[in-house]
Amino acid sequence: MQSVQFEAPGTVEQAVALLAGATGDARVLAGGTDLLVQLRSHMVDPALVVDIKHIEETRTLVRNADGSYTIGSAVAGAEAHEHDRFAAEWPGVMESWDLIGSTQIQGRASLGGNLCNASPAADSVPAMIAAGMTANIAGPGGRRTVPVEDIPVAPGRTSLANGEFVVSFNLPARPAGGGDAYLRLIPRTEMDIAVVGCGVALVLDAGGIVTSARVSLGAVAPTVLLVEDAARAIVGTRLDDDALAALDAACQAACSPINDKRGTIVYRTQVAGVLARRAARIAAERAGSR
């Protein structure tokens, strides 16, 4: 291992300057629950590590006047629970965050880290995509905002340019009649990596008809997927059996998984449909219960 330069800047500008000026591999450090593991197992060997947790904007979770949220990229799941309305308004996003690791890990693990680690099996990412979240990125060229689904491009790779990092996320106000849910399958009950993950966010009208939906699948393709056909399968329906079967089929059709130690192509594909049906029902129940 080479020696590592460690920096903990207090502002976004300083962080960008450090990252952009780095000569070797530079890594952002949020909770470190992925990065430190990778460092210790020699999977990465950075010349520079920039801890972003001293930057106020990355560490705050606020509900804006219009009901939308701005979530710092380095906020930990345990901290999100301290907000009085967040978990109740976006239970699907919260439950996906809560599934990451164990109590100890949840005291550190951030949405920014989960997204930028760019694992196709990252738990919070399908929920973020279903909820329609966008990411605020800072870089040498200034700031830009992109949909979450545009950030991972391949396992372990993101679309962030040299010197860029995610400062925070925008989560829209929960619509009237809206509900969301996230489900994953792991063989055990915790400390495991999703074999399949599925996030669903939808809106029901007063008559119980789905007026809009977003469905996202994890661990069934090189990146987390936004499955538009799956949403189309349920919009305009009451989530009756036919609609759920169509949702199941659309999700299965979107899958292009691999056979690996965590699951087979057949199994992942089949379970993607099952989880989508179940998540849609839970999201609808949550939408209806408000």
Partner: peptide, 24 residues
């Protein structure tokens, strides 16, 4: 134990060699 076609062990750790956890 999960071996690849070259006979190398693919899951030499507790993440993918799944012993039960307490909550199971």
């Amino acid at each position: 134990y999960i071996y690849n076609e070259r006979g190398q062990l693919e899951n030499p750790g507790f993440l993918d060699y799944r012993i039960p956890v307490a909550s199971d």
